[in-house]
């Protein structure tokens, strides 16, 4: 069984926001003037972090949790975790009750006023199932810090990179260790 995860090493992110636009391109026709965001990049700081003045970019996107609290919260089972790890929101089933929104520890679910459902990243499963990388993970990222694939493999790759970088990046990407609430 394949195991799929989308992991973004925020330490390496430069805040270029290309991933945001790549996701938009995948889900919205060219003439769409708006449309919900499944992923958004925001500047954290500059502020004191661990006693040091620091500035990080954060990429807000569904982490496809191991035991997704959003799914547990949904009364109509519109959110399901697939065996390969992808947590899918079924837009047909979603009633827009928004009970899941507050349950997500990563603020990765939003409410789509146009569709009257919640919205979140479904890991481009329509692409993944056809052998294509998720739109944001298809090599567009200039930092090469958006990883898609087996989470254990990804962790290995990130640790390897970190070694070569000379110890930089002591923040383990959150998606690797997802605990139960």
């Amino acid at each position: 069984m394949n195991r799929y995860a989308l992991i973004i090493e925020e330490f390496a992110c430069w805040g270029c926001k290309a991933c945001e636009v790549a996701c938009k391109q995948e889900y919205n026709p060219v003439d769409a003037t708006n449309g919900i965001k499944y992923l958004s990049v925001w500047g954290d700081g500059p502020k004191l972090m661990n006693g040091k003045l620091d500035f990080m970019w954060r990429v807000n996107v569904c982490k496809h949790c191991e035991e997704p609290p959003c799914a547990q919260a949904c009364p109509v089972e519109a959110i399901m975790k697939r065996e390969d790890g992808i947590v899918i929101l079924d837009y047909e089933k979603c009633t827009g009750c928004q009970l899941c929104i507050d349950e997500c520890p990563y603020h990765a679910i939003s409410f789509d006023e146009d569709r009257k459902t919640v919205a979140k990243c479904n890991l481009c499963h329509h692409r993944v199932d056809k052998g294509l990388y998720p739109a944001c993970a298809d090599n567009i990222c200039l930092a090469h810090c958006i990883y898609f694939g087996d989470p254990a493999e990804i962790e290995k790759k990130i640790l390897e990179k970190r070694k070569i970088r000379g110890g930089w990046g002591d923040i383990i990407p959150k998606a690797i260790k997802i605990s139960r609430r």
Binding site: C16, A18, A22, Q25, V30, N139, I140, L142
Partner: peptide, 15 residues
């Protein structure tokens, strides 16, 4: 030059 990576502007060119 950029080995297949793009920025926001390139990605939004069609708009």
């Amino acid at each position: 030059i950029a080995h297949g990576t793009l920025c926001t502007k390139g990605l939004a060119s069609a708009q």
